[in-house]
């Protein structure tokens, strides 16, 4: 068997929803051995996701997770060599498609939450952008190990989630390296979102958000801002500001 045909056939055997007899015949020998490869490849993905997406797995159950994995492998199989990114690709796929019937209504939020946690957990935070001292008239430099998340269900907190509004800043704590979440009010959430824009100074971001909320700078706003910035700086979520000329 040619190398090229061997690879396309075995890859298809592992990815297809149903193994094809003609592939088993082409590969030759004992079909059970080839089906073992299929079983090992597919089982490894399910195991990876039940570890990496714990809340979503609890919501879906392992069987429904397995069914989603089957669909993912057949329709949008993994294109990353890094195991740590597999759950992100799978979660994206699952969120783009109808979730299995009978899955609880918080399943999509669970996928979003697990993926955000994973993103923060693995984010490469080696200094690649210059960071200068914190300054209001410069763009803020935020840690890459962060994610903003709006959830309808309290999947981040409760074993049995309840419905509500949850605006979260998910981040990796600098000392423990554990991923945590801060609950933000609507103004703070909008502000941290605006801070993420690369070329907007912090002052500019504040005025943008105020304008969108129909508010003016006043003592209350200044107090909220000071408290939020203090918290973000202390936790290392704000690392400083982009230096002049950067």
């Amino acid at each position: 068997m040619k190398l090229d045909a061997a690879q396309s056939t075995l890859a298809r055997l592992c990815l297809d929803r149903t193994p094809r007899d003609e592939d088993l015949t082409a590969l030759g020998g004992d079909p059970l051995r080839w089906l073992l490869y299929r079983h090992l490849v597919r089982g490894r993905f399910v195991d990876t996701f039940s570890d990496a997406l714990p809340v979503a797995t609890r919501a879906l159950g392992r069987e429904a997770l397995g069914t989603m994995v089957e669909r993912w492998l057949a329709e949008r199989p993994p294109t990353t060599r890094y195991v740590r990114e597999l759950s992100l690709q799978f979660a994206d796929f699952a969120l783009d498609h109808a979730l299995p019937e009978g899955a609880p209504p918080w399943t999509a939020d669970a996928l979003r939450w697990d993926a955000a946690v994973m993103r923060c957990h693995i984010a490469d935070d080696a200094e690649r952008v210059p960071v200068g001292p914190f300054a209001m008239d410069r763009p803020v430099v935020l840690t890459p190990a962060r994610a903003l998340l709006r959830l309808r269900w309290s999947v981040h907190r409760d074993e049995v989630p309840t419905e509500g509004e949850h605006a979260l800043l998910v981040f990796r704590a600098e000392d423990s390296l554990r991923v945590e979440a801060l609950t933000l009010d609507a103004f703070s959430f909008a502000l941290v979102t605006a801070m993420g824009a690369p070329h907007t100074s912090l002052t500019g971001a504040v005025y943008d958000v105020l304008a969108r909320h129909g508010e003016h700078a006043n003592a209350d706003v200044a107090a909220v801002l000071a408290s939020l910035l203090g918290d973000l700086l202390e936790r290392g979520i704000v690392r400083g500001s982009a230096p002049d000329g950067a």
Partner: peptide, 12 residues
């Protein structure tokens, strides 16, 4: 194969 990673060590 064709950019799809099977995350296994498969025989040639």
């Amino acid at each position: 194969r064709d950019g799809v990673f099977l995350h296994d060590l498969l025989p040639i």
